[in-house]
Simulated assay, not measured.
Amino acid sequence: MVIQQHIGKSIGILISLAVVAFLFLMSLAYGYTNTNVHTVYQAYFAYDGSSAQTVIKTMRMPRAVIAALAGASLAVSGAIMQALTRNPMASPGILGINAGASLSVVVGMTVFSIYSLQGFMWMAFLGAFLAAVAVFFIGSTGSSGLIPLKLTMAGVVLGFLFSSITTGLLIINEGRLENIIFWLAGSVEGRKLDMVMPVLPFIAVGLFISFAISGKINALLIGEEAAKGLGQKTWLVKAMGLIVVVFLSGSAVAMAGPIGFVGLIVPHVVRGLVGIDYRWVLPYCAVFGASLLLAADIFARFVMYPTEVPVGVATAALGAPFFMYLVRRGVMKG
């Protein structure tokens, strides 16, 4: 029976990967420029320098790669956060990661006159890292040490603080608002593959660590005392989990800006399909997260044609109704 379940889940992974490949191809094939799947084939196997083929190679390919990587990173980090905090409402935003990254980018723009996407990327990664360290430090203070409730509350409070400071800086520097507003909404438009290479090692390490500790997370879900009774160093698992959150969500925010709902919705969908075994939950989250953000990016191109909306707005439009559906069905209760 167990072998049959593993076979079924393995087949499910393969089918999900096929869906990702299909959405990736659709992301390359369709947009404002009149192209199709045949044009994609010609762009890579019979390139003639035409504008349509150039658009596919230089504009659509980078945004598809970034959408897939960001979606996978956000979904896995969201699943890790929900396990660490034992809070079904947790997402990368709950620890103030998005808010910290946004504040760092706005500070870079207003104080250091940084306006390039590459500059935004590194400032976002720095802000995400510092926010996570601050939350971890505050959540660890006191005699009780690091517990889920303290970690969650620290993230919420610091997130509101970072957002308030960001809003204040934008009000003071109203003339520069247009330079940052599109990034703050979350977008993969106009990104280049040059933005992927610096953060790719962090994504790779984050995914590797998450898969490596997946079995220990299963033990932690039973209860902290039970996990300690099994000889597990729970503080080490939590620390490694926090590193995963910093690396994955920080990389996603650095590449695409703060995008919501992916890290919240995908883990619930996955657990509803494959159960609570994190050895399967995390790989499925990576694949489903990539699919969701690729689909949202395609949707964003046509929802208000000929004007494109940021993919962060599209994920909110897709995610908010589904989130309410989950609440009504009682999925969010645990």
Rank of each mutant, 00 (worst) to 15 (best):
I180W: 00
S251M: 09
I276M: 13
T166M: 02
F162Y: 03
L294N: 02
Y47E: 13
E225V: 13
V244C: 15
Y284L: 10
L220A: 08
S91Q: 09
E225N: 13
S164M: 11
P258H: 03
L273T: 05
M324V: 14
K228S: 07
A256K: 04
K9Y: 12
S27Q: 07
G127H: 06
F162N: 02
P306K: 09
L230K: 08
A18G: 10
G93A: 07
V157I: 14
M26G: 12
L126I: 10
G139K: 08
A52G: 06
S27L: 01
L169Y: 01
A226W: 12
A83K: 07
Q53F: 15
I172S: 08
E224V: 08
N218M: 14
H6Y: 10
L221R: 10
A64K: 05
A67H: 00
Y30P: 02
V246F: 05
I243V: 15
L146M: 15
A64F: 13
L126Y: 05
P148Y: 14
I56M: 12
A46Q: 10
G31E: 04
Y305W: 11
T307S: 12
S143F: 07
K57G: 06
V19E: 02
T166P: 01
S210T: 04
L95C: 06
L230N: 08
Y44T: 00
M255W: 06
S144G: 06
T234Y: 14
G260L: 03
G175I: 01
F211G: 13
L158G: 03
A99I: 02
L273Q: 00
R60Q: 05
A83D: 12
A154D: 15
A70M: 02
P198G: 11
V55A: 15
I298M: 05
G139M: 13
A286D: 02
A286P: 06
R63F: 04
I213R: 06
A314M: 04
